[in-house]
Design a protein around this nucleic acid. Structure first.
Lengths: 277, 277
DNA sequence: CCATCTTTGTGCACACGTTCACAAACGCAT
DNA sequence: ATGCGTTTGTGAACGTGTGCACAAAGATGG
């Protein structure tokens, strides 16, 4: 059995992954329209509500079938049903949450959870001081009950909100118990067997991506940009770069991040320098 | 000023967006190696640790420059520094969190927050009963202090953990105050001016995507698949489909989701049917 | 029934992302 | 110095996703 770290699916029954990822967005917008008793909606209107462009939306829907009426638009209720069905939301999905810390608590209380076919089957934790307490009206049960719960309630989706160190271990146990889809909030790369889907939600990564763009915005206003920082040696061809690399290796081994950070401030001027040397 | 709902950036200084999204992953793996005092690492090893394939990793790094040494690998410390710098983590990013409910609390307590240059500048809430309490050692302050805090502490990143109804309003206010990057946890499509980045984290969407794949797995084992569900009318060309659509519109207007769900059970057999009729 | 107006569904071109596969570059031993 | 084994960096092929632009399909009014 091959083990794949991330397991990105290549096309599912012809529906592109990117489209699948947008269906929940459309569904949310459509549900709002439905609550306002709006009977039909055009691709343009719906696209605006979902924050995408209308051509993309139409193409997305075309993968599901021809559910619109030219000259009119889409029937809201019908589309809600079709998308729900396509996403598998016409059935109930029991979910276990493992790791009832701050985040686990927050998720247990999350309203949007139950709203669309997802039901919290159990809250689990390994810490005996947490077990027995309750969150969102549900008792926190011990990890050892995992296997019994998964089997008896036919749980196929697990949510991991443990500290990073425990995540892979918990993941293995979930998979062993029969869970085949995992939503991972721990900042850990999970390794799972083929056939198991993992999606990750990582606050820290999102912030870092924002920081990147933020820095870019800030660095563009002044004309200087990030000048001397990019050592000419690193772009130079041939033995020059090799020498630079050698110096880096020699110097780097004895240094830690803080030292390097401190150095950055010194090097922040124009002069080209072999970075950590 | 054009207003764009989502604002996907087209290339930043030559570094592809997909690469930027992976840099934090590499950084995390590298930091772990650094703590174990590993001096160098090959693309193969690092790729395994980050859960990607090695060719992708090498290409990603090639956008940053030539920081490896052929025949040896990459200097861990040096790479940590380069990626940190590229992501803008060598500086401090003050962040405000708006909406101190369950999730806001969880985020305030999240350790990985401060670890990499992100500092919680303030916790904000509009609810007077929450204001004045404290979370993670920080006092919860009133929304009205937002503008002063953003300006005095030079906050450029805001995190929204409010209920969905308040999100756009809070977003507008953040932007007005000078915030140019927003991490949105509310299940809402935010509209922002050009130049403002929004990233969203949506538990419900992630679960729905998992449900889709889960359903597909379940539907493939039996040979039948999803048989009669896909009405032949919907695939039929010409006036037949038009008639079906017309029926849907006529019927749909008076129905709600529950009714349709109930019908699904009845229609779950082989016979082709005009869905909600 | 015809003309006109609206909106879908999609072919096509292009941009972006991934993976392969290999030459060039480097360390090291002799 | 030279040769050998290793690993990077990247050109090129391929796959996926996006957006334009328009024909086809239907609604509507006369």
């Amino acid at each position: 059995m091959r083990r794949t770290p991330v397991g990105r699916q290549t096309r599912a029954r012809g529906i592109p992954e990117a489209t699948v990822a947008r269906l929940p967005l459309y569904l949310r917008a459509l549900t709002a329209l439905s609550e306002r008793s709006v009977p039909t909606v055009s691709s343009e209107e719906l696209a605006a509500a979902a924050g995408v462009n209308s051509a993309k939306l139409r193409k997305d829907f075309s993968y599901l079938g021809s559910y619109g009426t030219r000259g009119v638009g889409y029937d809201v209720e019908y589309l809600v049903y079709q998308i729900s069905r396509e996403l598998g939301l016409t059935q109930d999905w029991p979910v276990v949450i493992v790791g009832i810390g701050n985040l686990g608590h927050a998720l247990a209380n999350y309203g949007g959870f139950a709203s669309r076919g997802f039901r919290v089957a159990a809250l689990l934790d390994a810490d005996p001081t947490v077990v027995g307490s309750s969150a969102a009206g549900l008792p926190v049960r011990h990890m050892d009950e995992l296997e019994a719960i998964v089997e008896s309630q036919h749980v196929s989706i697990g949510v991991i909100t443990t500290p990073p160190g425990a995540a892979q271990q918990v993941c293995d146990r979930l998979v062993e118990a029969g869970v085949t889809s995992i939503l991972n909030f721990a900042p850990t790369v999970l390794t799972v067997p083929d056939g198991v889907d993992v999606r990750k939600v990582d606050l820290s990564i999102e912030l870092q991506i924002l920081a990147f763009h933020e820095q870019r915005k800030a660095g563009e206003e002044p004309d200087q940009g990030r000048s001397g920082e990019e050592s000419v040696l690193d772009r130079a061809p041939g033995p020059v770069r090799a020498a630079a690399a050698k110096l880096r290796r020699a110097a780097g081994a004895a240094k830690d991040i803080k030292d390097i950070k401190a150095e950055k401030v010194e090097n922040d001027s124009e002069r080209p320098a072999v970075m950590p040397a």
